[in-house]
Design a protein around this nucleic acid. Sequence first.
DNA 1: CACACTTACGATATTCGTAAGGATT
DNA 2: AATCCTTACGAATATCGTAAGTGTG
Lengths: 301, 301
Amino acid sequence: MNMRQLKAFMAVAQTLSFAEASKKIFISQPALSLAIKNLEESVGGRLLIRTTRAVSLTAEGKTLYEKGRRLVDEWDAMEEEMRQLFRLERGMVSVAAMPSFAASQLPEVIALFRHKYPVINVQIHDVIAEETVEMVRSGKVELGVTFMPPGMADIDGFTKLARDEFVSVIPVGHPLSNRETVSWSELLESDFIALQRPSMVRMLVEKTLSDAGIELDVTFDSHQLATVGRMVSNGLGVSVVPALCVQQMEQLGAKVVPIHSPTVSCDLGVLTNQKDQLSVPAQAMFDVLMKFYSVNANSES
Amino acid sequence: MNMRQLKAFMAVAQTLSFAEASKKIFISQPALSLAIKNLEESVGGRLLIRTTRAVSLTAEGKTLYEKGRRLVDEWDAMEEEMRQLFRLERGMVSVAAMPSFAASQLPEVIALFRHKYPVINVQIHDVIAEETVEMVRSGKVELGVTFMPPGMADIDGFTKLARDEFVSVIPVGHPLSNRETVSWSELLESDFIALQRPSMVRMLVEKTLSDAGIELDVTFDSHQLATVGRMVSNGLGVSVVPALCVQQMEQLGAKVVPIHSPTVSCDLGVLTNQKDQLSVPAQAMFDVLMKFYSVNANSES
DNA sequence: CACACTTACGATATTCGTAAGGATT
DNA sequence: AATCCTTACGAATATCGTAAGTGTG
């Protein structure tokens, strides 16, 4: 007994005619006849009663028809679903991203992805950088977008998207707000607004400054980048954020100025769990991310 | 995609090894390899990740494994059930029988059937003769055992089992109780106990007597043959029943004596719905019935 | 080198379509 | 005679097993 035979039987059971059924399933009528014969031999008895003028089901045939209908439907649904999965006409991809990325570039990336694959669902986990790593490692998500801290650079499954140079965020009207660049020492003459720990951005800033022997005095801190931006634009002080967030900060009404001495920089990239191969939708999302940054890089050069 | 390929995939998914899986499903390992390859081509992408040392499932492979497990289980169950149906290792037969048969020979027949086919369930409908015919005609039961009234002899789907000559039932100690035979006129000198209408037995007795110009005066009547028998054995009167019921009447303590002038007789037989072929269990029951009566006929000759 | 999967290839089995046969209306 | 299913048979396709190939630990 095989699926072809069962489908042949179902077609005959529905039409009660070998001739019609054979057209329905696109085989010749003798081929159908043979398929039914073999099916009957396989199960050990008659399923159909053929008189020269009419075809009907035996009691056992009726049983098989009832059971078979569900099975064939499920089979076809499964087959179609598998094809859809590979054609990206169905499916889901789960992505974790650190807040500074989730709030800045990610919506654009998702819009691009969604435009290209309109029926693939995207599950975003907006979590701190450390948890992004953890979620990828544990398999809760397939992709994670985060900064790769310079120290732990040899985790495999990290693909660099771009190098990010941190920039200062300064209120409009502040003495430094129209400068081409500012130095840390100039910046720290104003009150400093930082992200609350634990935060990768906060950590990178602190580490760079402490390496350079500069002391950071944090006047205000907040969990949300948007709050930091708003505080700056209201003149409460200055801050430093990844270049990722330039647009966001400007929209919040603050000025953005590059910093030097020392620069704070970090690699932005995609994490994947190397022991699992990416699903088709995850690979597609990965490609969209890569393309997004390669296009951006080209436009900048 | 076909069932063989799916089963091959399930085996690999379970063992995570082509070599082991191939042993499990009794094909060579290259044949398995090819089956998986073809399955992957059919669905349009990779289901398994093969490194030289380990096999694992892709995300899509996991989906197929989950869906496929149910489907394969249901398939195997269906296949086995169909085979069991034809091997009479599963199934049911529904039989209608008129009360005089249901209460006399039927238990023996069922015991024989059950001994031969211990797992086939038997559904008995103990109904009056007219309803036996109706239940077969409407398909509620596959077989009906009843008398075929002489008038409507050309209903097809009737197979004669035996000719039944009605006998008189007489209390022990009654003047006629030790006779070889009795005539109707002798019998009707005593009070007559009959089955209540509607009853095929009652109808046959009345018809025969009225054809012979004999008037029947019914003193008592009852629905149940057992009650009639008990009433006779308690000396309330005499009755006439099908020869089928001889044993039952004797067990109830009455004497049974053949009658003549005129004899009442009728064909006992099996009704089937000619437009439906019998199911395997119904055919088996039919055969048991036929054998039961051919053996009985032989033993009497 | 050993192990595990893939590819190559000839043999076997299955399935197919065309043509002919048989039975019923 | 027309219709419908079955049988016959050669061709095409699929599947199989053996043997050789490939890549990794």
